[in-house]
């Protein structure tokens, strides 16, 4: 089972994702409410995949991607983005994110995005 770390500042979003992922055979090993926590938890848990919100307090998703990539160049990170955040997604992809999901998301798209990694 693939281990997933879910980073989002909204508990609601984290729970949505967790429920979707767990229904589809992923194991959500951790949740992070901001980029810093995500980086810490990544180091701690070594998940297979990270879903990363872009707008988060303390440290945003893009910085977190950069930091995780610096720690583990092979990290697989999926950005969670809203409409209108194109430039940030682009930045994240340049920084090494492997893909992205657009909110509000559909379950099958989320699963496909993660499964293809």
């Amino acid at each position: 089972m693939k281990k997933v770390l879910v980073a989002d500042d909204a508990t609601f979003m984290r729970t949505s994702l967790r429920m979707m992922l767990e229904r589809n055979g992923f194991e959500v090993v951790g949740e992070a409410e901001n980029g810093l926590v995500a980086v810490n938890k990544y180091k701690e848990m070594n998940p297979d995949i990270v879903t990363m919100d872009i707008t988060m307090p303390i440290c945003d998703g893009i910085k977190a991607v950069q930091m995780i990539k610096e720690y583990d160049p092979n990290a697989k990170i999926i950005m969670i983005s809203s409409m209108g955040q194109e430039c940030f997604v682009k930045e994240a992809i340049i920084s090494g994110a492997k893909g992205f999901i657009v909110k509000p998301f559909k379950e099958d798209y989320v699963i496909e995005t993660l499964a293809k990694l």
């Binding site: 979003m13 809203s82 909110k103």
Partner: peptide
């Protein structure tokens, strides 16, 4: 920044 972020989060959750 914080207000922006909160509005952004509310927007996302409400849309979901």
């Amino acid at each position: 920044n914080e207000i922006f972020r909160i509005m952004h989060t509310i927007k996302g959750s409400a849309a979901m």
